[in-house]
């Protein structure tokens, strides 16, 4: 594969890598909710400072994080423009014919983009520092209590891990089929959007057919290896809750306290 996939695991041995995936999952979930409570410079500042610390601790190069922000740049831009021109309130900062920019508009534009950046950085931190297997195991483990209400936690986790396993394979295959159709004169680049979507049909159909074939093969191989669902299964990976993970609870408590004090 010739491209870095967004959300790819970056192996390492940092403190963040070593945390229990369940602790990380729970923390990230709670932290994302917390982000929505920040509403002024001080509270956003606290969260930005905290995220910067975690990024530093993860020992993952900054440019990998900035790469993860690239796909949402357009969204951020739209949000900024939206708030700049449409949110009213506070002092008028700029006025030119039909354009009026209010103080509140600038505030909102800054905060909304910060919020988006924080969310993406946090999610990226989780996927960069947690191997897919750990992630799915953590999820399965956390969802386990709900199995008694009929939630197929094991199947869900297995599905996720198989999907992660096959993403690069299918990505490569897409490239191959695209090239083959290009050699037969297919054009994926020109024309209006509708035509371009239509031009992908000769890629998508073979891709679906191959995905089904792979699924069939894989099911057979799994069955041959005695797979019969989650019952009586043991697990190679064991999850251990350590004192480091408890630390996350304390840090989170401080963050909540900080946000409560700082927000308006």
């Amino acid at each position: 594969m010739n491209q870095l996939v967004i959300g790819q695991y970056v192996p390492g041995r940092s403190l963040i890598h070593q945390l229990d995936p369940r602790a990380k999952l729970a923390f990230v979930f709670a932290y994302m909710i917390l982000v929505f409570f920040a509403n002024n410079i001080a509270s956003y500042g606290l969260l930005l400072f905290f995220s910067a610390c975690t990024i530093y601790l993860s020992q993952i190069p900054l440019r990998i994080f900035s790469a993860s922000l690239k796909p949402i740049l357009f969204l951020i831009l739209v949000m900024i423009l939206f708030h700049l021109f449409l949110t009213k309130g506070g002092q008028v900062l700029f006025h030119f014919s039909f354009l009026t920019i209010y103080e509140e508009g600038v505030r909102q534009a800054v905060f909304i983009s910060l919020r988006l950046i924080l969310l993406v950085l946090t999610a990226s931190l989780l996927t960069f520092t947690t191997s897919p297997m750990d992630l799915t195991d953590g999820l399965e483990n956390m969802l386990h209590p709900f199995t008694r209400f009929g939630l197929p936690a094991h199947e869900f986790a297995l599905m996720m891990s198989i999907a992660l396993r096959f993403i690069p394979t299918i990505w490569d295959e897409t490239e191959k089929i695209k090239k083959a159709q290009m050699a037969r004169g297919a054009d994926f680049e020109s024309g209006h959007i509708f035509r371009r979507v239509k031009s992908y049909i000769p890629v998508l159909i073979p891709l679906f057919i191959s995905a089904f074939r792979r699924a069939e093969d894989l099911a057979l191989a799994m069955e041959a290896r005695c797979y019969r669902g989650g019952i009586n299964r043991t697990k190679l990976r064991e999850l251990h809750f350590s004192t480091k993970d408890l630390g996350l609870v304390i840090i989170f408590a401080f963050l909540v306290l900080g946000i409560c004090l700082l927000r308006e």
């Binding site: 191959k176 090239k179 050699a183 037969r184 004169g185 054009d187 000769p202 073979p206 057919i209």
Partner: peptide, 27 residues
Amino acid sequence: VGVVFQYPEHQLFEETVVKDIAFGPRN
């Protein structure tokens, strides 16, 4: 230049044999 890639049958997509072969000339 025509290219037949490995396992070329994995690129077939049309409903009929004739339509699939016609894909290139149509393009």
